[in-house]
Write a protein that binds this DNA or RNA. Structure first.
Lengths: 276, 276
DNA sequence: GATATCGTGTTTGAATTTGTTCATATTCCT
DNA sequence: AGGAATATGAACAAATTCAAACACGATATC
């Protein structure tokens, strides 16, 4: 950490010396993560800056949605769940915002489609994460996933959650590896929802080869195989080929795909759901 | 600090210093959850504020529908639940606030102790969660856990995280079950940190029988077995007996335990670390 | 090298919160 | 019932906290 003497008050006080705003922000969020609330005066003393500076930091952090300001300090955002789930995560957050409305429509449609099923497999990804939010009130439903985010989100809901075990991928917070595959390959799901990063007439693609193994497990071990794919991903290939079009039963998207993809999907007997 | 020792009334006096209104609200609701009813004077003494302030808090909380005010205090809103169950486990957030400073000191000590080790097993719980925050910068370290919270927290850090697979327990977000046990029982950890909810000369105790299986795995499969236990848990038994004192190597706590526990620990050859 | 820009600290007055006092209302006890 | 004891709420005072405006220094830009 810091090579300054420190040795002050506080558990990990980065004191004295010039300090970049980002370091202060990190310190504030760190304190918030461990105690759920911070006080302006306390932070100011610990970081050796004026109250006003701390307040300006808090304003900025609040605008970014990382905390909620109150009189005298701030409390943790996202309720006070302290799951550190909604923290920066540049990639995931950025992707979540991108095409958000389309993804939300797709997620709602997916939730409707899942109504009749009791064991649901949920892949990793932003769209599937939004699907999870729709399943919160669903009692007597078992959700199987390899996404730590989905597990954390549904961990406070009615649904029963089963998480695959194994190595946790950084940032994406997905679980992968042979162990996870073996664990889920023994099961059978009524329906699965698989996220994608690209679709062409040649099949389905994703950028992370670490997550592909489990996508294939979901597709192999489910009664109804549903792919979720917003319109920005049409005609895009990515790093890894996940599956052929014939390997899915339903594609949920937000706009009609180009005609060649439609033709290929028809040939593969895939239902196309365009979310309203 | 220029205040009283404060450690007189209440099992967990979260007093001292300034306090955000939100923290008071949380404390009130927490007390309400565990005992079903609260008294104005009691809360005021415990939080070191005037009665009037407590009343204003209660007015606010009543308007929000979180409780029902009575003469002299308030009772729980959703009357049905909250029957003063002592074996009931309070919410994660409530436990995180309770004895927070002590837990943070324990966590820092645990982090220091873990320095020399490369594969670390981290149990579920608030104290172990705080330990995780100290491991964020630790590269080339593998952390094994059954806590979704720990995995989410460390998922954006330098450390490598391995999560056990299985059923996710509601609220606590811990993974449990035969699958998880089998998965970790094949491994060997350099050091493990196990959280507790009680310790007596007869051994270690915990609220949740669902989490005990994995605690025992950690203790069975680790080179150095470390228990984390703040001083409010001395002489307290809980639902489940986790292990004998002889089954751990180190106990980290925040204050010297009562003499009979010390004697029993000495007999069991357990190192006692009192975090400064 | 001069100027603009950004971040920070200080001052000031306003807004919010908290503590205190004192009538009034409620509960408890005999 | 009556009356003592206590809780309550309104009003006010004191203490904090907030935010806008300005000043200062450092860095960036031309």
């Amino acid at each position: 950490m810091s090579e300054f003497p420190t040795a002050h008050l506080g558990p990990n006080a980065a004191a004295r010396g010039r300090m970049l705003p980002e370091m202060r922000h990190a310190a504030i969020l760190d304190a918030l993560r461990s105690s759920g609330a911070v006080l302006v005066a306390e932070i100011a003393a610990q970081l050796q800056v004026s109250d006003m500076t701390v307040r300006r930091d808090l304003v900025e952090l609040e605008r970014a949605g990382r905390l909620i300001r109150t009189h005298g300090g701030a409390v943790s955002a996202s309720g006070s769940a302290t799951v550190a789930m909604d923290n920066e995560e540049p990639s995931f957050d950025a992707r979540l915002r991108r095409q958000h409305e389309a993804k939300e429509r797709i997620a709602a449609e997916a939730a409707t489609l899942s109504m009749a099923h009791r064991t649901i497999a949920l892949d990793v990804g932003t769209t599937t994460y939004l699907v999870a939010n729709h399943l919160r009130e669903r009692a007597h439903t078992k959700v199987f996933t390899n996404s730590v985010r989905v597990a954390a989100s549904l961990g406070t809901s009615q649904a029963e959650v089963y998480l695959a075990g194994g190595r946790v991928r950084r940032d994406e917070l997905s679980v992968g590896g042979a162990e996870a595959v073996a664990q889920f390959d023994k099961l059978w799901f009524d329906i699965c929802f698989v996220g994608l990063s690209g679709i062409t007439e040649n099949g389905l693609f994703d950028y992370s080869f670490e997550d592909v193994d489990l996508k294939q497990v979901y597709l192999r071990r489910s009664g109804l195989k549903v792919a979720l794919c917003d319109s920005s991903k049409f005609q895009r290939m990515s790093l890894v080929h996940v599956a052929q079009l014939t390997e899915i039963d339903v594609l949920i998207t937000d706009a009609p795909p180009p005609s060649d993809i439609v033709a290929a999907l028809k040939a593969a007997k895939v239902d196309i759901h365009v979310a309203p």
